[in-house]
């Protein structure tokens, strides 16, 4: 029903099919390297170095994954601890980033107060700033606060990202002021207006930010901020396992595939929910 309504004059089936084919072609190009790395992970080691290279596995095997599991279970710190660390970091960072960025973005998009221009400018400049001494300065700040080698060092710095705030601000700016005025007339304070009026109307943006936040947090390594082995997140140990060189080429490929799964799951969850919001009518100004 819904999709029929979308069909309008000038939107032919032929056009749809042409677009579909075009997207398929680009899609194949995008997927090819990923397909390759998945294939690498199920190739037995003698097949990894065949000539000419094969684009498929002749005798696919789960051996690399079994080896990965064996390596993982023989470690000094139990493997589950690394998984816990990464999941913990990802969940805390994602939740806090969503809460904090959206409320700050509401203020910057819809509030009027002294200092608004300066804060917007600071966010914009921070977004453009890159420096190779940044991590030294972050280290100094964290050392000063006594955060080095604690969970704080791998969660707190990743919560308030300028990118998250910028994204939310752009979307919230599109909400008509009339809705906010109406909420104010009904006696809602800033907190309620933000959470009950504005945020439900930028659901696609929230879900998109959730993808970015989780993805970023899942890649946190905490190098130079974390020394205790039992506090290190998953990517560090995956890199240790795969840095053993050619002998572990297959295991490394398996490690890459395994670490890819959680962000993909979060992506699919969020993205399919973004699609659902399509059914409701939006409120853009």
């Amino acid at each position: 029903m819904a999709s029929k309504k979308r069909k309008q004059i000038g939107k032919s089936r032929a056009g749809d099919i042409a677009i579909f084919i075009m997207l398929m072609l680009v899609g194949l190009f995008m997927l090819f390297p990923i397909y390759l790395s998945v294939i690498q992970s199920v190739k037995p080691s003698q097949e990894l170095f065949l000539f000419p290279p094969k684009l498929y596995a002749i005798a696919p095997t789960g051996q690399n994954f079994v080896d990965l599991l064996n390596t993982a279970s023989n470690m000094w710190v139990p493997f589950s601890r690394y998984i816990f660390n990464s999941v913990f970091v990802a969940v805390v960072v994602t939740i806090c980033q969503l809460l904090f960025s959206s409320s700050a973005a509401y203020v910057l998009a819809k509030g009027e107060f002294p200092g608004k221009r300066a804060l917007n400018k600071a966010i914009e400049l921070a977004l453009l700033f890159t420096s190779s001494v940044m991590f030294i300065m972050q280290y100094m700040v964290m050392a000063f606060m006594g955060l080095i080698d604690t969970y704080f060092a791998i969660t707190l710095p990743y919560i308030a990202t300028p990118m998250g705030l910028f994204l939310m601000r752009q979307f919230m700016g599109q909400i008509p002021d009339a809705i906010i005025e109406a909420a104010k007339l009904d006696g809602a304070g800033h907190m309620r207006t933000c959470w009950q009026v504005v945020i439900p109307n930028v659901k696609p943006a929230i879900l998109t930010l959730m993808i970015f936040a989780f993805q970023g947090a899942w890649q946190v390594t905490g190098y130079s901020f974390i020394y205790s082995e039992e506090l290190k997140p998953l990517p560090t140990v995956m890199q240790q396992i795969s840095s053993a060189g050619i002998a572990r080429a297959g295991v490394a490929a398996a490690a890459v595939v395994i670490t890819m799964i959680p962000p993909i799951a979060v992506f699919l969850f969020c993205q399919s929910n973004v699609m659902e919001t399509m059914a409701q009518s939006g409120m853009k100004d």
Binding site: L119, M134, M137, L165
Partner: peptide, 28 residues
Amino acid sequence: KRSRGLYLLMAPFFILFTIFTFVPVVMS
């Protein structure tokens, strides 16, 4: 003073932003 509700709402973000991004950037 009038906008203190707004400041309060964005405080969590900007406190973390100041400590972990703004100060290191200015120091860099």
